[in-house]
Structures are given as C-alpha cells and as structure tokens.
Amino acid sequence: MAADRPFFSILTPTHLRPALLRRSLGSLLGQGFQDFEIIVVADAWDAASAQAAAELLRPQDRFFKRDGKPGPAASRNAALDLARGEWIVFLDDDDSFEPHHLATLHAAIQAGGSPVLFTDCAVVTEDRTQPGMPPLSRQQLAFGAQDVQQLWVKNFIPNHALAYRRSLLEGIRFDAHMASLEDWEFLVAVCERALPRYYPGGGVVMHKDYVNPGTRRGTAENSNNSLVILDFLYTYRRWPAPTPELKAQRQALLTGVGLSLPIEWF
C-alpha cells in the first residue's frame, strides 16, 4: 500500500440533514484508529451541511455536491470512484460508529480471511425534533449465528456493518434506478465473488426516528410495497441463486406475497 493511501475510505452520502451529518462525522473523528479518509457526497446543496463539512473534515477528506437525481445510490457510486483506501466502508449521514469500531475492524482484517466482513449492529431510536436528538431506546442485533447463504434470499446486514476490500468491488456499483433494496442488490453482486465473513465486537449504530417518520429516508411513495416486490424480483433475475434450495426459498418468499412464479425464474 502506498504511503499516502489510507487504509479505509469511509463513504458518506448526505441529503439536507446537517445535524445528522455532524453526528456521523463526529463519530469518525472520535475513532481510536485514524488511518482513513472520509468522502462526503451531497445530492442537494445546503449551507449548513457545507458548514459542517468545512468544520469537521480534515485535509485528507473530501466533500462535494454531485449533479443529477437525488438518492444515496448515485452518491455512493460517486464516492466509490474517488476512494483511495485499501478497504471501503459506507456510513450514511444518519448513522454512526462507536469509538472502537474501526480499530476492531482493522484487527479483524489483519487476522486474515474473507475480502468482505460484517459485524453486529445496535439500533437506537430517537426523536429528531428534540434538542440533541435524545435516544429513546437501544436494541442490539446479533448476526453471528446467521447463515450468510440467506443473503441470496433477502438481506439482514445493514450497509454500514459491512467492509469490503476495494479490489473486490471492481466493476460493482449501486443501481440508482431501483426504488428500494439497492444496498442488498449491491451485496448480492458481491456475494457472486465472495461471501461475507462475520467478526464480533464492532461498534455499528443505526439511528432511527420512528416518532417523526417524515425525517427518515426510504419513505418516499416510490418505495411502496408493490415496487419493493418488483425490486426483489429484479434482483433475483439479475443474480440467480446458486443452489436449488435457495431458488425454492426465493420462490416461497414471493409466493407468500401473492406472486407465483416458476422455479426457473430464481
């Protein structure tokens, strides 16, 4: 690895949420392991987000506003094209890492194994209309006992709980035309090359505001149930399951929501 190349590239799409962006970036600056760059890509312009980036980003980090249709998929792709790190980590503006996360991840990478890793995740609910966005509850999601083969059927790993060796992602990008599930479709493309390996002890935090759902992304009308089903089907057709058993599980999932299709589709 070149001396000026960071170990991690942390890729952060943002959309008009400066307070959340500040928390996300602050969680990175507080990491015990600091060999990383941050690439923030905004899909819409607001002075407060630009101010947050100006105050919190370091000389080796980057912030820019991209053109085109809003959405995190295109922003992640733009950040991927700029990333210089040996490993890629995604962190949306509404999520965060605990201070030990990157050090724990780095140790897992140094131990060797798969070019794609994942860990557990804490889900913190909050009210974003309140000063300081106080937490209302916290739940720990443990993924160590999960069968990674199930990723061919549906997703169970949050995007920021994963880390990818940069070379593994050559030619793989997020599909910005999907109404939903683009994170999972990206991960299934990765599974064609290597299945993720679990490591314990990560510090991944997912923040959710269920009190004020209008503040959350992913609630647009174009992500309704019908289009989610179509995105499942699109992913299944694009990335056929590797075993008859997984094909049957895919078929059963769609049959359960009223879409009966022959096994050959999966």
Rank of each mutant, 00 (worst) to 15 (best):
Gln110Arg: 15
Ala50Gln: 03
Trp239Ile: 01
Ala189Trp: 15
His106Asn: 02
Gln51Phe: 14
Leu253Asn: 01
Arg216Leu: 13
Val257Cys: 10
Trp239Val: 00
Arg197Ile: 12
Ala194Ile: 09
Gln146Thr: 05
Ala111Pro: 14
Gly214Met: 04
Leu29Arg: 15
Asp183Lys: 09
Leu20His: 10
Asp46Val: 01
Leu253Lys: 02
Pro70Val: 07
Ala2Glu: 11
Gln110Cys: 12
Pro213Asn: 05
Asp209Gln: 14
Ala189Leu: 08
Ile38Pro: 00
Arg22Phe: 07
Leu181Phe: 09
Glu126Leu: 05
Leu261Gln: 08
Pro99Thr: 00
Gly218Glu: 02
Val205Tyr: 03
Ser9Gly: 08
Ile109Leu: 15
Met1Cys: 14
Ser96Ala: 12
Val204His: 05
Ser24Tyr: 14
Leu261Glu: 10
His101Tyr: 10
Cys121Thr: 12
Met133Lys: 07
Glu170Phe: 11
Pro59Ala: 01
Leu227Ser: 06
Asp175Ser: 09
Ser75Gly: 04
Ala108Gln: 05
Pro131Asp: 09
Ala179Phe: 15
Leu102His: 02
Val40Met: 01
Glu185Met: 15
Arg165Asn: 12
Pro18Glu: 02
Phe63His: 03
Trp239Tyr: 15
Arg128Lys: 13
Leu181Trp: 07
Trp152Lys: 00
Arg128Gly: 05
Phe64His: 15
Ala73Lys: 00
Val148Lys: 03
Leu261Trp: 12
Gly214Lys: 07
Trp152Ser: 00
Gln249Asn: 02
Leu56Glu: 00
Leu57Glu: 08
Arg166Cys: 11
Leu141Pro: 15
Asp46Phe: 11
Ile10His: 05
Ala107Pro: 12
Ile263Phe: 15
Glu245Pro: 08
Ala161Asp: 09
Leu105Val: 13
Glu264Leu: 05
Val188Leu: 06
Arg166Met: 08
Ala48Tyr: 13
Gln140Ala: 03
Ala176His: 14
Pro135Asn: 06
Gly201Asn: 11
Glu126Cys: 05
Pro244Gln: 01
Leu151Asn: 10
Phe36Ile: 00
Ala50Ser: 10
Ala78Glu: 06
Phe7Leu: 07
His177Glu: 06
Gln149Asp: 07
Arg173Val: 06
Cys121Tyr: 13
Pro240Cys: 02
Gln31Phe: 04
Asp95Gly: 03
Leu261Ile: 05
Ser167Arg: 11
Asp61Lys: 08
Arg76Asp: 07
Thr104Ser: 04
Glu245Thr: 09
Pro200Asp: 01
Leu56Asp: 01
Leu151Tyr: 15
Ala47Asp: 10
Ser9Gln: 08
Val153Ile: 13
Ala145Ser: 13
Asp209Tyr: 15
Cys191Leu: 04
Ala19Cys: 05
Val188Thr: 02
Gly218Asn: 06
Met133His: 14
Leu162Asn: 03
Gly258Glu: 02
Ala2Phe: 12
Pro18Asp: 05
Phe266Asn: 06
Ala252Cys: 06
Leu246Cys: 11
Ser223Gly: 07
Leu91Arg: 02
